[in-house]
Amino acid sequence: MEAPNEVRSRAAYTLLLVGAAGFAVLLLGPWGWQLNRLTVRLYVFFRYDVPIAPAGALPEHYGVLLNVLLFVPVGVALAKLSGWSWWRVTLVATVGSAAVELVQAALLDREGSVWDVATNGLGALLGAVAVTGVRRLRARR
């Protein structure tokens, strides 16, 4: 029987590989129009169908939220697998996001955005800080 740490490590690597494949498809594919439609659908759903969104929320805000949420697992995976500090994970993920934005702008019919890089970095930061917090709690026990 495998030790719990080995199982967790194997699961983390598997998650990272599946996530990387998913990222490649999502970030480098011609999905710009579909992603815009998703943000509009989320806006309509949370504004009218289940009216819990703030009055000033716009479809663009959902795009920002999706960018943040997209990179939370990146921050978690990088922090868990590398053992890096939260700031190093955030830096590496943000640089990676900038590289993806450059590729999208140069090779695909998609617009690269500094705002996307910043929100992706924020998502990685949130994931890395969560892992750091769990590490500190475990170390205290």
Rank of each mutant, 00 (worst) to 15 (best):
135 R>V: 00
80 K>M: 15
65 L>T: 11
133 G>T: 07
89 V>W: 08
26 L>T: 12
71 F>V: 06
18 V>D: 08
92 V>I: 15
42 L>T: 06
137 L>E: 08
25 V>A: 07
72 V>Q: 02
20 A>G: 09
106 A>M: 12
110 R>S: 00
82 S>C: 12
83 G>M: 09
107 L>G: 14
94 T>H: 04
89 V>A: 05
24 A>F: 11
112 G>S: 04
69 L>S: 01
113 S>T: 07
99 A>G: 09
125 L>V: 03
130 A>M: 11
124 A>C: 04
72 V>A: 03
118 A>V: 10
104 Q>M: 03
138 R>I: 03
119 T>R: 00
120 N>S: 06
74 V>K: 01
135 R>D: 09
43 Y>C: 09
23 F>A: 09
40 V>N: 05
97 S>I: 03
81 L>F: 06
58 L>S: 14
56 G>N: 14
42 L>Q: 11
59 P>M: 01
76 V>I: 15
60 E>D: 12
26 L>Y: 13
30 P>Y: 10
98 A>N: 00
70 L>K: 05
85 S>D: 12
66 L>E: 02
125 L>E: 05
38 L>R: 01
45 F>C: 07
76 V>T: 09
27 L>Y: 07
131 V>T: 04
58 L>D: 15
59 P>N: 01
107 L>V: 14
25 V>P: 00
25 V>H: 07
79 A>K: 07
53 A>R: 05
84 W>R: 12
104 Q>S: 04
57 A>G: 08
62 Y>W: 13
70 L>T: 08
115 W>I: 12
88 R>T: 09
113 S>A: 13
117 V>K: 00
129 V>H: 03
35 L>Q: 04
133 G>P: 00
111 E>P: 04
126 L>R: 03
54 P>K: 08
70 L>Q: 06
18 V>F: 13
102 L>G: 15
93 A>V: 02
114 V>I: 04
34 Q>N: 02
115 W>E: 10
65 L>Q: 02
75 G>D: 07
60 E>N: 10
127 G>K: 00
106 A>W: 12
27 L>F: 08
78 L>E: 08
118 A>P: 01
119 T>M: 11
21 A>F: 12
45 F>K: 10
67 N>L: 00
98 A>F: 01
32 G>L: 04
44 V>R: 15
141 R>G: 14
99 A>C: 11
55 A>N: 08
65 L>M: 13
22 G>K: 03
128 A>Y: 07
37 R>E: 14
64 V>W: 09
130 A>R: 02
123 G>F: 00
80 K>V: 15
77 A>G: 12
41 R>L: 10
131 V>G: 05
38 L>D: 03
22 G>V: 02
128 A>F: 10
81 L>E: 03
96 G>P: 01
86 W>I: 05
70 L>D: 00
93 A>Q: 03
102 L>C: 13
108 L>E: 05
87 W>H: 14
60 E>Q: 12
86 W>C: 08
76 V>H: 08
44 V>K: 15
39 T>K: 09
107 L>D: 13
74 V>Q: 08
75 G>S: 11
77 A>N: 10
109 D>Y: 11
109 D>G: 12
32 G>K: 08
128 A>T: 09
36 N>D: 06
29 G>K: 14
23 F>K: 00
126 L>F: 07
82 S>A: 11
51 P>D: 11
67 N>T: 02
33 W>M: 09
47 R>K: 15
63 G>T: 02
127 G>V: 06
